[in-house]
Design a binder for these strands. Structure first.
Lengths: 206, 206
DNA sequence: ACGCGTCCTGCCCTTTAGTACATGTGTATT
DNA sequence: AATACACATGTACTAAAGGGCAGGACGCGT
């Protein structure tokens, strides 16, 4: 099986050659795509020299050409990994990985799987689990008890506004804002605007 | 290597035995934990007969005993998978999986990795990526500029505490709390405690 | 020893927040 | 017409919050 490495720099070329003696080097997805290639072809993309967005673009191009892309990063970063994977990469690993690891990654991805560091999987799971808003407790119930005006005030508090700003935006007096706030505190069982702000921040919708 | 299956029903027992002829059967994590076992021991948990919460509990128990847990579900479900994985499971697969697949899963998890269906990985990535994107700017950078004490105060604000409560908890005067707050506002470029509360609520860690 | 940063606190003052009490308008529902 | 409720606002007062000024204690590195 052919191993294609796309890199503008060739950072860890020696290491890669240990793992894949017959590797093919290219400097960009564009150059590579000009060649004929087989669907499912492994494609190692060294993203170190690309910006995040440029890397995402390269990946998108390769994936739409049915290549299996593995991102190689010199400085692994969680957020970067999320983005590259969602752009279609099937693997994410350190550019300086040892040959044995590269081979293992290649095997997994060739088999149709994903490969990424264990720590990254854990972060992925943690973030996803939190995002799945099944999370019941934290959400303060009772916002549906608020009247239209009260709700508007509550949202403003959720943006960190003070009474004067809210009054200006809603075109009412500061006194009125205070009245709405008092009503909100009463209905939601809160003590002050700080607690309201936190309650609003936990609102699923916003 | 020993394969332990925890299941109240034994749904796919025949299949499991094909993959692991010498498997050990137990009906609950409690029963299993009563036995001696080796750290890193594989532990297949058939969650079909458990509720989601009960399954999470079982997993938590096993994981705290340093077992590697693989959840087997008769009716795979994305949200369920997220929760079980975040509870510490290292694998999630169909209870009716063929023996070859079970062996593959076992191998990966034994090696310290995670195993889950490719589709699940994609959902995980998609959800996580969206969660990260949905929370772009708002996260106030600079919390690392805070001193230990200031950070403690910031966290307290994130819980909706007022100055008196913070003072009591930290065993300092209210004046000191105010001083810390002033420093925090200055460092983070915030105006008041409401904005701080919101900034803290958007903190990835808590 | 000296400077620097962190932490702590007092006095005092200004600004916000939050409430009690009271009043008024408009729009529905009964 | 009467009742109910959302919305609005004023006066006035108490309580928090926030900050200026000043000073003390402790630990650390030059």
């Amino acid at each position: 099986m052919q191993a294609v490495f796309i890199t503008p720099t060739g950072v860890a070329l020696a290491r890669w050659q240990l793992a894949f003696p017959k590797l093919v080097l290219q400097t960009s997805a564009r150059a590579y795509l000009a060649m004929a290639h087989h669907p499912g072809q492994l494609c190692w993309l060294d993203i170190s020299a690309f910006g995040r967005e440029a890397a995402q673009e390269e990946i998108t191009k390769l994936v739409s050409a049915e290549a299996r892309v593995i991102a190689l990063s010199a400085v692994p970063d969680e957020s970067e990994a999320f983005h590259l994977l969602s752009a279609g990469a099937r693997g994410y690993c350190h550019a300086e990985a040892v040959p044995e690891q590269l081979l293992e990654v290649g095997k997994v991805v060739t088999a149709g799987g994903y490969w990424m560091p264990v720590g990254l999987v854990q972060r992925l799971v943690a973030v996803a689990a939190r995002a799945v808003v099944d999370t019941p407790q934290p959400t303060v119930e009772g916002f549906d008890l608020l009247t239209r005006r009260e709700y508007e005030v509550a949202l403003a508090i959720g943006k960190g506004a003070n009474n004067k700003e809210i009054a200006t935006n809603l075109e009412v007096s500061e006194r009125t804002v205070k009245a709405h706030l008092t009503a909100i505190f009463e209905k939601l069982g809160l003590r002050d605007r700080v607690q309201l702000a936190l309650a609003v921040s936990r609102l699923p919708v916003h």
